[in-house]
């Protein structure tokens, strides 16, 4: 654990983008606020020049300059596989040639959930890496008989070895909410799809552990600056540990104490149970210093 955490997040991201990390299937999650095409560009830029790039286009209107082959997407998986496979190396070839093969799918949402598994398993192999863009907030039609089957987005996230999730750069939470409500009605404000954006990397290690880092990216300068994990979040996870050894006395609560603490009815809860609405209840006690002359001190 120590060795992994000490690793520079930027280095991991760089290795993933340049396909050096063993992540056969990279999923890019985007939204209309920040499209994932910039990640495809980054991958193509990082990739070695010997890499064969097979670009499967469902959305792109033009062939990207880096694409070796440009394949038109179609909705039936068998046809799609038929059109891709001729460009892929046969098992013997892949042993011989050193060049890597990279398949890019610019919008995998066109593939329905039941077909997703078939497509990915058939494409990915040790010498072939797959980068696919999937749009969030892109609902799909689900027939009644597949109601319990995971959605294609769930499937993709489950199968992906690395997930790169893109967000438009926002100033704060309120701006984010505002943006969300605007996009809900397809009212697109300025500043989206800009070269600077936020990226969350989820990298699944062979050990089964998943690493999560957030970056601030700039696609013109090709820089990825890690953003420090939210401290409050970290603290919430290990709250008890943080209090350990902090003082000479014990700050921790035992289980029994915690239960008791939770059972304390806080005053505002009590107030809500009044049927009459707000009322000030005052009971005179013998210690109270009650001045009859003072008009401001009338508690009734």
């Amino acid at each position: 654990m120590a060795s992994l955490s000490s690793q520079n997040p930027s280095v991991i991201l760089q290795r993933i983008l340049s396909l050096k990390e063993s992540t056969p299937f990279i999923l890019v999650l985007d939204s209309i606020g920040r499209s994932g095409h910039c990640i495809l560009d980054e991958v193509a830029r990082e990739a070695e020049s010997s890499t064969t790039v097979i670009y499967v286009s469902f959305e792109s209107t033009r062939k990207p300059d880096y694409a070796t082959y440009f394949i038109e997407g179609c909705s039936t998986v068998s046809r799609l596989l038929d059109s891709i496979q001729p460009f892929l190396p046969s098992p013997e070839q892949s042993k011989l040639s050193k060049g890597k093969y990279l398949i890019m799918i610019d919008c995998i949402n066109f593939v329905t959930a039941p077909n997703t598994v078939q497509l990915i398993t058939q494409l990915v192999s040790p010498s072939v890496a797959l980068v696919a863009v999937a749009h969030k907030n892109h609902p799909e039609y689900r027939p009644a008989e597949l109601e319990n089957y995971p959605s294609s987005l769930q499937l993709l996230q489950f199968m992906a070895s690395s997930i790169l999730e893109l967000f438009p750069a926002t100033v704060d939470d309120t701006a984010e909410q505002e943006l969300e409500s605007q996009l809900q009605r397809l009212e697109i404000p300025r500043g989206l799809n800009s070269p600077t954006y936020k990226l969350t990397l989820t990298n699944r290690r062979k050990s089964g552990r998943a690493l999560r880092y957030t970056f601030k990216c700039d696609s013109t300068a090709h820089t990825f600056t890690p953003i420090q994990e939210d401290i409050s979040q970290a603290e919430a996870q290990e709250g008890t540990e943080a209090l350990e050894g902090l003082t000479t006395f014990n700050l921790n609560t035992s289980n029994k104490q915690r239960v008791a603490k939770e059972q304390v009815a806080l005053p505002f809860l009590e107030a809500q149970s009044f049927n009459t609405g707000g009322a000030i209840v005052y009971e005179f006690e013998k210690d109270d210093d009650y001045d009859e002359e003072d008009p401001y001190e009338d508690p009734f």
Partner: peptide, 30 residues
């Protein structure tokens, strides 16, 4: 008519709305 509640919501989106959202989103990406 576009009204996309997002994937987080459990709200059921009608088939017509799904098509509308997919069409419009597709156009934006394109």
């Amino acid at each position: 008519a576009y009204d996309n509640p997002g994937t987080d919501t459990s709200e059921r989106i009608s088939a017509n709305m799904i098509e509308q959202i997919r069409f419009s989103n597709g156009c934006v990406f394109k």
